[in-house]
Write a protein that binds this DNA or RNA. Structure first.
Length: 525
DNA sequence: ATTAGGG
DNA sequence: CCCTAAT
């Protein structure tokens, strides 16, 4: 269809290069670029502002949604997931004594321009060039923002290095396009490093860079916080020791608001955009929130079991404990039932002025305490502010004066699925035809260099599925249909290279002779 | 770091 | 896509 050049003349074109023995590994380093794209996005203050605003509203009780008729661009939130809160047991908090010092009080928005559909990525995935402002990771606090507490939370703690960082400044940079890390491949460390780091992130050595505690209205210096924290750890409240003895301490140090999509005219003002964002967040957080709880990835049902019964004890490692906040808005349309989030357990009045006098439970988003961030949720319960002040309440600590940690990152347990486009398949087939099926690294370099999200393993895997696809009936195929001619080429190349693989080892020099002379085999039809 | 295959 | 043994 999209006949680029001319007709395919068979793989022999690059015959020479294809028979060239593989260069030593040391010489095969791909001179990759991969530099920082500077796509930091830590709109942390956003949440703070929201919390602030929510608090204010709780007083004025009159939500004024729609006060800004200017860009009445009904911000259509086309996607949203659950808010997640990660809980850490205070005993193991680390502090970031890192460099980050300047605290920016402004909301940082990352406006992602439409991705250029680069040829290499063959992005047919429908990237509309509209003036869509995509805000990813809108509110992102701290590292431990996991979708799946199970596989994400480390069980090793304490002595593990704080933070999953890489000397290379490339690592752990939010990917604004997919909210996942990517492309922190430097010349020196390439894919394996990538994989390795991912592995670290997705399995064992996942250790978070914990933040200090922050107080919404009364920021405490981190040293002071640390001190108090330490003090807290060592000094158990002695009052009614009997009761406190078996109390579990929590410290929620992560809070995340998922992706929000906002459409806004290109000529809109920054201020209007900010307002839109604010409205979006407010709407998102508005109404009620449901609190879910996960333990080791499993939802914790809201029966009357005690914490101890479900396995949360004083000595327990709380890394695998997580909370989710789910908005329960009426127009809560399609929200993919993430298996990572716990089911709604507890409805919590949020905003709407219900913060002050909640029926029974309320969510405190501001009282981040240094001395009182000890919580004793003997019941799956969220207590009121008064109780919080009583040092016995579960407090959602939302840092307000948070300085984005440079090397932190929102991690994702599994790479997002990116179906190969026909264009990519075409490129893959072409490369394999000339290079064969045992040189995936070369295939990568040849046809997917620059496509950071396609590793040679991916290409190998794709080839495998292509071969399979080509061998099944069209009715059984799924996804974007691959042109039959491409599949034919797949089969041809697969057949050829499987026949010549062994020979290739024998006759290092002339394995492709047959191929070169009979390009017809690949032309098909 | 890559390859090769199973999951 | 992930995981991993084997190179």
């Amino acid at each position: 269809m999209v006949s680029k050049k001319s007709i395919y003349h068979g793989p022999r074109d690059d015959f020479q290069s294809s028979v060239i023995p593989k260069a030593p590994r040391s010489l095969r380093k791909s001179p990759h670029k991969r530099s920082s794209d500077g796509s930091k996005l830590c709109a942390f203050e956003l949440l703070a502002a929201v919390a602030d605003k929510l608090l204010q509203e709780s007083e004025s009780s009159t939500s004024s949604i729609g006060q800004e008729p200017k860009e009445q661009a009904t911000f259509p939130i086309v996607k949203r997931e659950d808010i997640e809160v990660k809980v850490n047991d205070v005993k193991s908090n680390h502090f970031d004594h890192g460099s980050s010092t300047e605290s920016e009080s402004n909301l940082t928005l990352k406006l992602d321009p439409p991705l250029k559909s680069s040829p290499e990525s063959g992005n047919d995935s429908g990237l509309e060039h509209v003036s869509e402002v995509r805000i990813v990771n809108s509110v992102n606090v701290d590292l431990p923002l996991y979708k799946n507490p199970v596989s994400c939370f480390s069980k090793h703690r304490g002595n593990v290095k704080t933070g999953i960082t890489d000397d290379d400044d490339n690592s752990f940079r939010p990917d604004c396009r997919g909210a996942r890390m990517r492309a922190f491949r430097s010349r020196s460390r390439s894919q394996a490093g990538y994989r390795r780091i991912r592995k670290m992130l997705t399995s064992r050595y996942r250790k978070v860079t914990l933040t200090k505690d922050y107080e919404l209205t009364n920021p405490t210096s981190q040293i002071e916080a640390a001190y108090k924290r330490r003090k807290l750890f060592h000094h158990r409240p002695k009052s009614s020791y009997e009761n406190k003895k078996n109390k579990v301490k929590f410290s929620i140090n992560s809070f995340k608001v998922p992706e929000l999509y906002i459409e806004i005219p290109e000529n809109a003002t920054i201020g209007s955009l900010k307002r839109l964002v604010m409205e979006a967040i407010r709407t998102y957080l508005g109404g009620k929130l449901r609190v879910g709880m996960t333990l080791e990835g499993k939802k914790v049902k809201d029966n009357n079991r005690t914490l101890k019964q479900i396995g949360i004890s004083v000595n327990r490692d709380l890394d695998t404990l997580g909370f989710t906040l789910e908005p329960s808005l009426p127009n809560d349309i399609s929200r993919e039932p993430s298996s990572c989030t716990a089911g709604p357990v507890l409805d919590v009045g949020f905003s709407n002025g219900s913060l002050d006098h909640p029926p029974e439970t309320s969510l405190e988003l501001d009282k981040c305490v240094d001395k009182n961030h000890e919580i004793v949720p003997l019941e799956t319960e969220i207590l009121t502010e008064e109780k919080a002040a009583d040092s016995n309440a579960l407090v959602l600590a939302v840092p307000i004066n948070y300085k984005p940690i440079k090397k932190s990152e929102v991690t994702q347990c599994r790479r997002i699925r990116r179906p190969f486009s026909v264009t990519e398949v075409e490129a893959l087939v072409e490369a394999v035809e000339t290079l064969g099926t045992g040189r995936w690294r070369d295939v990568k370099l040849r046809a997917f260099d620059g496509a950071d999200h396609r590793t040679y393993v991916d290409l190998k895997d794709k080839w495998k599925t292509l071969v399979h696809t080509a061998n099944i009936s069209p009715q059984q195929r799924r996804g974007e249909p691959v042109p039959q001619d491409l599949l034919d080429r797949v089969l041809a190349a697969h057949g050829y290279w499987s026949n010549h693989k062994v020979k290739q080892l024998k006759h290092k020099t002339e394995p492709l002779g047959i191929l070169g002379g009979s390009s017809v085999e690949f032309v098909g039809i």
